[in-house]
Design a protein around this nucleic acid. Sequence first.
DNA 1: CTGAAAGCGCTAACAC
DNA 2: GTGTTAGCGCTTTCAG
Lengths: 332, 332
Amino acid sequence: MTVTIYDVAREANVSMATVSRVVNGNPNVKPSTRKKVLEVIERLEYRPNAVARGLASKKTTTVGVIIPDISNIFYAELARGIEDVATMYRYNIILSNSDLNEEKELTLLDNMYGKQVDGIVMMTERVTDPLADKMGHSPVPIVLAGSIDESNHLPSVNIDYTEATYEAVKQLIENGNERIAFISGSFNATINKKYKYQGYVKALEEAGIPIDEALIFDDVLTYDQGMKVYNHVSKLAQPATAYFVGSDEPAIGVIHAAQDDEKIVPIDIEVCSFENSKLARMVRPQLSSVVLPLYDIGAVSMRLLTKIMNKEDIEDKQVMLPYRMESRNSTR
Amino acid sequence: MTVTIYDVAREANVSMATVSRVVNGNPNVKPSTRKKVLEVIERLEYRPNAVARGLASKKTTTVGVIIPDISNIFYAELARGIEDVATMYRYNIILSNSDLNEEKELTLLDNMYGKQVDGIVMMTERVTDPLADKMGHSPVPIVLAGSIDESNHLPSVNIDYTEATYEAVKQLIENGNERIAFISGSFNATINKKYKYQGYVKALEEAGIPIDEALIFDDVLTYDQGMKVYNHVSKLAQPATAYFVGSDEPAIGVIHAAQDDEKIVPIDIEVCSFENSKLARMVRPQLSSVVLPLYDIGAVSMRLLTKIMNKEDIEDKQVMLPYRMESRNSTR
DNA sequence: CTGAAAGCGCTAACAC
DNA sequence: GTGTTAGCGCTTTCAG
């Protein structure tokens, strides 16, 4: 039925080995026989079977990608970065959603191992012990994208979340705010709980502003949740005048809730986000945000993975990408 | 190094065949030997090699997914639908972005064939002849998701784009609008050029409103492009009073441009979109939109594919999903 | 219920 | 430059 390397060999009066050589671009083939083989390949429409190749060579030229949820722009942007450089290096991507569920992450890793991927790029909120253990015993290299492994054993690509947050909050303080709410994603996430939060605390302490637990919220991920938090905070005896929000969607929720509350952003209320997806430009006023370069984090992670799979020497396996602040009109 | 089925067989004092049987849940194994084998598998941490399995069985339990661009929420939503039911049926997904480039689509198909995927779900703007040809000669089943194959040879999952557009435009007409702009994505896309446009024409003709080319725009995909189109149309001698926009992003651009123009939406200007992503609720006023059930289209496509791969009888290979209108505050 | 053996289609020494 | 020959790790008849 399907034409195999053997069929090509027979038709071209050469051995399988020679066909294999021309298919794989091995230079040790006389131009004339290469030509002959190529012709037969064309005529028979021969297409190498990647599975057989994978079994024989122990390389599948596919890498696994485990992310929380592809339908979230946040992660989709990362995925695109990964995919683009994967394509560049001729790798295919097996994509799986973990929904931030540790059980699922563990299963997916096993699944990827079973599929004999050549490497894995993973994004997760927290590298728990079971995860660290399974990844530590991985048969293939793994790179963490935008994720922190506190033991620092795994290669990873991140930005300095603490500094970025510190700078953003400091700016809010310099603008005259003393009541600054910290609206975060899940505190189960290492990045939120230990890094961004620390930056927030550092900025406030430096300015001599006391930390008020009443202004700190975690698990705020959606537009609606952002609105809800604003509506709660605005009714406090001492409401916040500025909001540092962990991502764009809830930040927009905060802005709209503030506007519904007859407040003018950024005059009465300032809002700063931490993401800068294309949503940031699609609100009025446009959203000021720390730029989290998701696409780049994905791309660099994949690039790092190719190097490791290729057994190249890596100077530093914990890559820190630069970040910047995009000041638009939701802050003064 | 890695433990194989052979190692397990030896340790358990059975044959490879028996191990294979227990791994694959074949009932023809005595409970006691099954138990014994399972223990060894556990002890040795045996993990079946999917590549070897794929070569021997000619089934890889992975399906290819070709979509235009995963970083676009529109397609990401679709991808999630596909992935969810793929997972449900134990398939993995190889995900590739085509960027709507025919050349790339052709290459990706070949690539997928080579990887021996068991099936393919594809979304594309237009099934060109070369594409139809290559898909027609596919070694594995293919399902088109949210894409039209005009020859109707390929299984596909869609909604009735023409009727949906017709109804939406008709509503705009009933609201008293006579100057209704048709802001579309690329006219290279069959769905836009032949289906949605036809619905627009039908609604206008039925109402005796002449078609005005000056109100028809294609290739409008982004927020900025939406703004630009509004700014152009609003300066016409007879500007539009209503906009039917092909997707959410440019629809929001139109709304914001209208607001910058001191117009009140939906009093002075009505805007209706065709997508209903979560963006629709994140603008003020919230966006009225035809609901394009991307997630469902993805899920149903994948489900259909599993049936075909499974050689089940399919009543109808051209599935039409229901749609509905979500009336919010950008229309009256 | 279990085992033996023949591949699946290809790569990778190793000879010549 | 080219051919021969083992496998890669598993499934799948076919016997028994």
